[in-house]
Simulated scan of single mutants.
Amino acid sequence: MGDGRWLAWVAESDGVARGHVFLNLVERVPEPYEDNTPLGYVTNFYVTPGFRDRRCGAALLDALRRHARATGMDVLVVWPSERSVPLYRRAGFRPPEELLEARDS
């Protein structure tokens, strides 16, 4: 879409969109010793209620992950809803080992 930093996958059945997931390519700060491949931010993931628990969501995430591997993207991040955590875990997402966060209260 547009400048190529946003990608989308759509699941269809009988010509009707039944779900979608978006991937935002986030540029990293250039480092001389690290790979500067963008990281992927997974967002706007939705499957219509009638197609949930029928592998529609899993197929969308599989397609997104295949694309990430094919393009050398080694990090995907997501802020999942409580309901979606099991789906992301089945797709291979895990909590990061190294992450620090500071929030203003």
Score class of each variant (00 low, 15 high):
residue 1 M to S: 11
residue 1 M to H: 13
residue 1 M to K: 07
residue 2 G to R: 13
residue 3 D to T: 07
residue 3 D to W: 06
residue 3 D to C: 03
residue 4 G to N: 03
residue 4 G to D: 02
residue 5 R to S: 13
residue 5 R to M: 04
residue 6 W to E: 14
residue 6 W to V: 09
residue 6 W to Y: 07
residue 7 L to R: 12
residue 10 V to F: 01
residue 10 V to M: 00
residue 11 A to V: 07
residue 11 A to I: 01
residue 13 S to N: 03
residue 13 S to H: 07
residue 13 S to L: 05
residue 14 D to W: 03
residue 15 G to I: 01
residue 15 G to A: 01
residue 16 V to M: 03
residue 16 V to C: 04
residue 17 A to E: 11
residue 18 R to Q: 10
residue 19 G to S: 08
residue 20 H to G: 06
residue 22 F to L: 11
residue 23 L to F: 11
residue 23 L to Y: 08
residue 24 N to T: 14
residue 24 N to D: 12
residue 26 V to K: 15
residue 26 V to P: 02
residue 26 V to W: 11
residue 27 E to K: 14
residue 28 R to M: 12
residue 28 R to Y: 00
residue 28 R to T: 11
residue 29 V to C: 08
residue 29 V to I: 14
residue 29 V to A: 08
residue 29 V to H: 06
residue 30 P to G: 06
residue 33 Y to S: 08
residue 35 D to S: 12
residue 35 D to H: 02
residue 35 D to W: 02
residue 39 L to Q: 07
residue 39 L to A: 03
residue 40 G to M: 14
residue 41 Y to T: 14
residue 42 V to D: 03
residue 43 T to H: 13
residue 43 T to Y: 14
residue 43 T to G: 09
residue 44 N to R: 15
residue 44 N to D: 15
residue 45 F to P: 00
residue 45 F to A: 11
residue 46 Y to L: 15
residue 47 V to W: 06
residue 48 T to L: 07
residue 48 T to E: 13
residue 49 P to A: 13
residue 50 G to N: 13
residue 50 G to T: 12
residue 50 G to D: 14
residue 52 R to V: 04
residue 54 R to S: 11
residue 54 R to E: 10
residue 54 R to Y: 02
residue 55 R to H: 10
residue 55 R to S: 12
residue 56 C to M: 03
residue 58 A to T: 05
residue 58 A to V: 01
residue 58 A to H: 03
residue 59 A to D: 11
residue 59 A to F: 03
residue 59 A to K: 10
residue 59 A to S: 07
residue 59 A to V: 01
residue 61 L to R: 05
residue 61 L to V: 00
residue 62 D to Y: 07
residue 63 A to R: 11
residue 63 A to F: 04
residue 64 L to P: 00
residue 65 R to K: 13
residue 65 R to Q: 11
residue 67 H to W: 15
residue 67 H to D: 08
residue 67 H to Q: 04
residue 68 A to S: 09
residue 70 A to D: 15
residue 70 A to C: 06
residue 70 A to P: 02
residue 71 T to I: 00
residue 72 G to D: 09
residue 72 G to P: 11
residue 72 G to T: 08
residue 73 M to Q: 06
residue 74 D to P: 00
residue 74 D to N: 06
residue 76 L to M: 09
residue 77 V to D: 12
residue 78 V to P: 00
residue 81 S to P: 02
residue 81 S to V: 09
residue 81 S to A: 10
residue 81 S to G: 10
residue 82 E to G: 07
residue 83 R to I: 14
residue 83 R to T: 13
residue 83 R to V: 12
residue 84 S to W: 09
residue 87 L to E: 05
residue 88 Y to G: 04
residue 89 R to V: 15
residue 89 R to W: 14
residue 91 A to T: 10
residue 91 A to P: 05
residue 92 G to S: 12
residue 93 F to Y: 15
residue 93 F to D: 01
residue 93 F to Q: 11
residue 94 R to F: 02
residue 95 P to W: 07
residue 95 P to A: 09
residue 96 P to N: 07
residue 98 E to A: 14
residue 98 E to N: 12
residue 99 L to D: 05
residue 102 A to W: 15
residue 103 R to W: 06
residue 103 R to A: 14
residue 103 R to T: 15
residue 105 S to N: 04
residue 105 S to W: 05
residue 105 S to G: 03
